[in-house]
Amino acid sequence: MNRIDQTFARLKRSRRKALIGYLTAGFPTKAGFAHLVCALEKAGLDLFEIGVPFSDPVGDGMTIQRSSQKALANGVTLEWVLRAVSALRPQIKAPIILMSYANPLAAMGLQRFFARAKAAGVDGVIIPDLIPEEGKPFDQLAAKNGIALIYLAAPTTTRKRLKRIARATRGFLYAVSLTGVTGARKTVAAGVPGFLSQIRRFTSKPVAVGFGISTPSQVQSVRKRVDGVIVGSALIDQLEKSVQRAGVFVASLQKALNPQGVRHAS
């Protein structure tokens, strides 16, 4: 059983929701990255989504564009990310999901990438610019290497495609809360509850919501409808201030997500 499945199953047994944090690999620094991940696991992250920086992150807003540019300037490559994950794997218990646009993976070669990801201890991969219609070679290689390939659905996804995405996704289904790019928003879009219950009709797999979720009160407002919440830009915003601030922020989200308290990290 994949570590992501195990994590969702364990959390479900204790009636908890998963807090998934997005970090851009090698941001703010390469040297401090491993320490940052360990600190944020302690602070309350249940799963990590680690972004491979890309020159043209079409799904991302200003914050992640900035962190990606900084990471690229720091010299972060897919090669570096895989080595970093490999070193991190024994240090944390949380699943590690790589988020990468398709092109850096294609440049490495899909076969080579998935084999290397498996060897490094990667549990899942999110490819925001991969559509399920083109997913077959990715699906097969991911399955062969025991890696969950996680697909995204948006509020504009038609029922027919939602069905297809629900069938294809592994680990969980990534529900994009809005029509637009990543980035902190003041409120959760009005249609989100309806969208999330629509997704539930198509799948019994875990559902995690992301894009625009940036405050404890937003987390509170969606928690009952999902199995997990993904926070990216808002976390990067805090990281731009300090690791400590990011830790305090993660703890506040974890508290909002699981108000019943007591979290066991394993």
Binding site: F54, S55, D56, V58, L72, T77, L78, E79, Y101, A102, N103, P104, L105, A106, A107, M108, D129, E134
Partner: peptide, 21 residues
């Protein structure tokens, strides 16, 4: 060279890591 960019698989200017030039 061959790559995936702006939603299509086509030819693009990129470095060896697949970053767009």
């Amino acid at each position: 060279s061959l790559g995936v960019f702006h939603g299509s698989k086509s030819i693009l200017l990129q470095d060896k890591d697949g970053q767009v030039l």
